[in-house]
């Protein structure tokens, strides 16, 4: 019967059929924008007689990028932000996720709270922290004033602005890492930990020797995804410092937006996007290599 045959065909080729939708979606919707990005990066785009004129300029946009001090600073800031906040977030999130696993009562309560920050729209998070940090009317300085201390300009001080932004990022994104790691913790096989306990291992040893190795691929996923996300931060910073003071909190995504629209340099913005892409890819690759080195194993692959 044909229906039977179809069933068989699906059965035999399930591997391909299952992956087909994702490939189709991505080919249909990603190839065009990405192709356009690369093509645009080699042009200078102008508004001419009611339309766009793509003027080929070769590698000039890329050469410009290497001499662009603001782009370099923005990339440095973003990288620092990513490295610092992601490492702090992973440590806090893993400890929280493991701790939540240890308590019985109130564990739903804690979990819900620790996931909460992620649920708020970034703009709202920006306003939330502005209400805390603002020099003139922020809660932080009002509380300090209550104790007779004159608080600093958290977001405008040359030394404090960047750390203040990092704290916001950590507060916001620990929830994301927590959620991912938590899902991993929940799937930890209890038998292994139990047998460890019977063998007389301390809890810390169980965590280090049994649980963390199992969790490593999922923690790696969290690290990589978070690092990638960190390169997209934009809305909060726009609201909190708008890149200032000077360019101490300028990030690459807001700089690309500025070049693309405000400076009306679509070609150059495309080149910056490509270079950022290469940079993040290199960073992620470096993470994987580092992981392999440190654990002297084949990476997170099956």
């Amino acid at each position: 019967m044909s229906q039977r045959n179809l069933y068989r065909i699906i059965d035999d080729n399930f591997k391909y059929i299952a992956i087909a939708p994702v490939i189709i979606v991505l080919v249909l919707l990603v190839l065009m924008p990405v192709g356009r990005l690369f093509a645009t990066s080699f042009t200078e785009v102008k508004f001419v007689s009611g339309g766009l004129l793509f003027n080929p300029v070769g590698f000039i946009n890329y050469l410009t990028a290497f001499k662009d001090a603001i782009a370099a600073r923005a990339l440095l800031n973003t990288t620092l932000l990513a490295l610092i906040s992601v490492s702090v977030e992973v440590v806090i999130a893993v400890v929280l996720a493991l701790s939540v696993g240890y308590i019985k009562r109130g564990n739903t309560f804690f979990r819900t709270i620790f996931i909460f920050p992620m649920l708020l729209p970034p703009i709202a998070i920006g306003v939330m922290w502005l209400m805390i940090y603002d020099f003139n009317y922020g809660v932080l300085n009002s509380v300090l004033a209550f104790f007779g201390v004159r608080g600093p300009a958290w977001l405008a001080n040359n030394m404090l602005a960047f750390p203040s932004i990092i704290i916001v990022d950590i507060w916001h994104w620990t929830s994301f890492v927590f959620l991912i790691v938590l899902a991993g913790v929940e799937t930890l096989p209890h038998e292994l930990s139990e047998s460890g306990r019977i063998d007389g291992a301390t809890e810390l040893q169980i965590i280090r020797k049994i649980q963390l190795p199992i969790l490593r691929p999922i923690i790696m996923t969290a690290i990589v995804t978070r690092t990638i996300f960190a390169f997209k931060v934009y809305e909060q910073i726009y609201l909190l410092t708008d890149g200032g003071p000077g360019n101490r909190t300028e990030v690459i995504s807001s700089y690309i937006m500025r070049v693309y629209f405000n400076e009306n340099r679509m070609g150059y913005a495309s080149a910056l996007s490509v270079l950022t892409l290469i940079f993040i890819a290199a960073l992620v690759l470096f993470f994987y290599q580092l992981q392999k080195r440190v654990f002297n194993e084949r990476g997170g692959k099956a």
């Binding site: 992956i19 990638i228 390169f231 996007s273 950022t276 890819a281 992620v284």
Partner: peptide, 30 residues
Amino acid sequence: FSLGKFHWANWAVSLILASLLLIQMLPPVV
């Protein structure tokens, strides 16, 4: 499921995973 439970050539898995990651890395403005 397909990627995690079927045998795929190493290059195929790497290619798919790498493209997925690369898509995420692109600035949204693209």
